[in-house]
Design a protein around this nucleic acid. Structure first.
Lengths: 324, 324
DNA sequence: CGCCTTGTTTGACAAATGTCAGCAAGGTCT
DNA sequence: AGACCTTGCTGACATTTGTCAAACAAGGCG
């Protein structure tokens, strides 16, 4: 059209980014694409492209509010029962365990940033659940955040060892990360002692004991449990703890049905925070999914490790029935 | 269908709220409404209703990220020039001043909660701009937040006096609100002194001087300015301050082109924080819109009252040209 | 028991949105 | 200059989403 004053060389409207203008009109002023096209003097198809770009560039964020899940009947019941600060129950209508787990992880990931404040020191546990949470975190900068690896690393076949989990979380939140560069378990208590006295490691230990918030999951005490498959304990060792009443695993340590730590032969060889140090912190975010972890989750809640819980609906149901 | 096990009495899927399930599938898993309808066993029209309800109930939040505005060419330039922490420049392609003002207020409202942390004490100024921000705030609970009314109230014809502004902000953020129950200006310095010595008022004054963050706007020094229309100053008084170099109004006080407070006949009769107390706080959020406020905005930025600025594109342009 | 009231669901249609091949403007290389 | 990219835009068509009147269930009530 010769009437058109001049062709845009860069996508600008009165000199600036037209993509943002389009996104504002669409998402804030809720105009339809036709009106936007008219107003910006482009075709509607172009507006579609602009909006797509705005979404891709992350200018527009669509998220579900935590209220949707914390207002859930089961969420309220669990919150009351265990005296938690907040609980999210994610619906899992007829979904497979994997899919439900993914939803829970995504919900936890969305929720996490809003629970952190500048200056926080966040202790991070490890496992598939925690890794999934990290993976679903949107990059958001939390000023002056420190992420701490609570237990030593263990090579897992799946690639989510403790150091990976904490680094990943830290990267997503642009946080300082303090890793604990030792295995989660060593062969003898003597080796453990030597390591703990090593200057560098001692200072790392010193760092990781100073945290005010935690992000963690719990493991079951079944023979196919994570604690066995990752090599922290043998089936026989696990059985020993189970015989002493072990119901769940928290940061590699065994806890009984009331959440109390169970001392045993492995503890002296383990490298990482003890369960007693996890207790009664300002904020403890427990992410828990799958039926076989329900007893462990109940134990952790009774033990007072968590102030916040994210779980799926069917776990939430079992959790309430099994603990009443 | 007789195959259907039972008809829902309440809108539940496997016992729980189907609305949330639908919203999750749509907004997180990005299924289309057909697939969702099929999966939930309802008609597509019903899914539309569910999604509408989810939006109405606030389960779904669509917002534009601050990055979209702080990445703006002008935003970066202003940030550099005045050494601010962050600047948002809101596009205002061919919009009227009122519309642009509304956009800026909405953007500021979206931004505000993310800048607040538990335990903060937020001082709030007053005026149409601040009122608009409050009005556009989504209700979000900021734990242990205190909102403070920085200056006494003044009956305005438009209904956004200082007490209304601070109360409104506090209500939206579920914060404790501390008001200052005096007029912004009284007839004589003696009355001001009497009031300031009054126990209740003295304690309010004591409270409001302890804040770490501020939300404020600036007024121009033109004869039609807010400071005159609200009755804080007469045109003659305003003129006196202008003759002394007044360029803007900040919480009822006059500042010169470099942001320095100008002492004058009104100050002893004013009830509220002084400009010196506004300076160098942890965070100062200045919301500024409209061309005639550009000089005042520049003055406030030079004076170091703000760490953050929200403004519109055309003001941003003028701001850069007029201060270089 | 029939009849109303209220709230939910639905099918058919209308509107809005997404896709994609192809065009035009501008740059780059030979 | 001409061949050949790349980028952004568009029109025509396909798909998805929104609307609304009518149908339907459930509960209250004479």
């Amino acid at each position: 059209m010769s009437l058109e004053a001049s062709r845009r060389t860069q996508r600008m409207v009165s000199g600036e980014d037209i993509v943002i203008e389009a996104a504002w009109l669409y998402y804030h002023d809720s105009l339809n694409q036709n009106d936007i096209a008219e107003r910006l003097g482009v075709s509607r198809a172009t507006v579609v492209n602009y909006l797509q770009e705005a979404r891709e560039r992350g200018f527009v964020q669509i998220s579900m509010s935590a209220d949707a899940f914390s207002g859930h009947r089961l969420a309220i019941a669990i919150k009351e029962l265990f005296g938690l600060d907040d609980v999210l129950v994610i619906p899992d209508g007829k979904l497979s365990v994997d899919q439900a787990a993914n939803r829970v992880a995504r919900a936890a990931a969305r929720w996490l940033p809003s629970m952190l404040a500048p200056g926080d020191r966040l202790g991070v546990a490890w496992g598939k659940t925690i890794y999934d949470v990290a993976e679903n975190l949107e990059p958001v900068a939390i000023p002056d955040l420190t992420v701490l690896q609570l237990v030593g690393s263990m090579a897992t076949p799946y690639g989510f060892s403790a150091d990976v989990c904490s680094s990943y979380v830290a990267r997503r939140l642009f946080a300082r990360c303090i890793n604990l560069h030792v295995p989660a378990i060593v062969s003898t208590p003597e080796v453990a002692d030597v390591l703990r006295r090593e200057t560098l490691i001692a200072s790392q230990f010193d760092e990781i004991t100073r945290f005010n918030k935690t992000l963690f999951a719990v493991g079951s005490c079944l023979p196919d449990s994570h604690v066995v498959s990752s090599g922290v304990a043998t089936v026989a060792e696990l059985q020993w703890y189970v015989d002493q009443g072990a119901t769940g695993v928290l940061c590699g340590r065994f806890i009984d049905r009331n959440g109390k730590g169970i001392e045993g032969p492995l503890d002296a060889r383990m490298m990482g925070v003890s369960v007693d140090m996890m207790r009664s912190r300002e904020t403890g975010i427990l992410v828990s999914v799958a039926a076989d972890r329900v007893p462990a989750t109940v134990a952790a809640l009774r033990g007072g490790y968590a102030t916040h819980l994210v779980t799926d609906q069917s776990s939430a149901e079992k959790l309430l029935t099994s603990s009443s």
